[in-house]
Computed example of a mutant assay.
Amino acid sequence: MSSSSPAVPSRTDRQQSRQLAISEAVMAAGSLRIEQIAERFDISVMTVHRDLDELEDRGLLRKSRGVATASSTALVESSDVYRVGRQQAEKEAMALAAMEFVEPGQAIILDDSTSTMHLLPHLHTKTPLTVITNTLTIMNDLRGMRGIEMIGLGGEFYNWCSAFMGRITVREIAELRADLFVMSTSAIVDDICFHQTLETVDVKRAMFESASKRVLLADRTKFDKRALHAMLPLADFDVVVVDAATDRRHIDRMRDAGVNVHIARRPAAAR
């Protein structure tokens, strides 16, 4: 009996992992010269320039005169490159919990958060479904998936989050009515969801208003962060899904305030 070989990471996976590592190295140091990055990661200077150009487009850092400099924390944390590698196990557990609210035949809205992307590998278990999203990454991942009808929202494309936003996007959302909306947030302050960018707030509010049931995914780190723009109170969501390591004080406070909190437990195999 032959044993299966481990999956070989694709070129895109390797590039994303390297870019995440580069961004973290620059953030830790404050700034690094391009030659230092090339030596540390054993890559060519040309490859460093390409990676830095993409990371700069996503708001993670700035490149000037041969030096990469970290951007502000708020903008960095809003970037999809930064977010995609964070709290992977917790996001998977929350996604599995959110799947309990997905039913065949539904129209569901997914926002541009990396937490909701963890639902994608599980959607085939609840088909047929209509998926509505403004996120190019989700559109690409679901393209051609059997049993999934996809509605892609247009608008102005924002490279830092790989999503379409703006007035056109909000107008398109307003013309739709979905059964379920699953979203995440950058920060939770005073039991209110906050985000760093007003464009994101406008789109998520429109999605919220267009759905019959709304589910928020919020891992424990969201309660320790702050952001500029208020978005939606936790009490307005039908369900707030948190990970098992969330401070009990936050859970008790939310429940005392009438928030329907669901604690996502990690599968035994993942512990």
Rank of each mutant, 00 (worst) to 15 (best):
F208T: 00
R249D: 09
T127N: 06
Q196C: 04
Q16D: 08
L129T: 09
A178S: 13
L216A: 09
R177H: 14
K204V: 13
I43S: 00
E175S: 15
L136V: 07
Q87M: 13
G154Y: 11
S44K: 04
G85D: 00
R214M: 04
D57R: 11
V261M: 05
S184M: 03
C193I: 07
F157R: 15
T185G: 09
M207R: 06
M207H: 06
E175Q: 15
Q19I: 02
L136K: 10
F237S: 10
H124R: 15
E175Y: 08
P267V: 01
A95T: 00
D238N: 10
M150S: 07
I148V: 14
R220D: 12
V84A: 15
A28N: 01
V239D: 09
S72A: 12
M94A: 03
L136G: 03
I168S: 12
L96K: 09
D53K: 13
R255P: 10
T185A: 13
R14T: 11
D42V: 05
A107H: 10
G154P: 11
S4A: 14
G166K: 05
E103I: 02
V67W: 09
S44T: 09
K91N: 01
S31W: 01
A268R: 03
F181P: 05
L75M: 07
R62N: 06
R50D: 05
I251M: 02
D53L: 10
R255K: 15
M1E: 07
A270C: 06
E24L: 12
S10V: 04
H229F: 15
N140K: 13
T125R: 14
V26I: 14
R271N: 13
E56V: 09
K63A: 14
L232H: 08
T246C: 08
R40I: 03
A93H: 04
D57A: 13
R167A: 12
A257S: 10
L216T: 07
R11C: 06
V170C: 11
I192T: 15
F237L: 12
G258M: 01
A211I: 02
R171T: 00
T200C: 08
M99F: 04
V76N: 05
R248L: 11
F164E: 00
V81C: 08
A7G: 09
A244P: 03
R205Y: 14
N260L: 02
V240F: 05
A178W: 05
H229D: 07
P104S: 13
T69Y: 04
S4I: 11
M145V: 15
M183S: 15
Q36S: 10
I251P: 00
R14S: 08
R265Q: 15
D243F: 09
H229N: 10
E100M: 10
I173C: 01
T185W: 03
V8F: 12
R220S: 15
R265V: 11
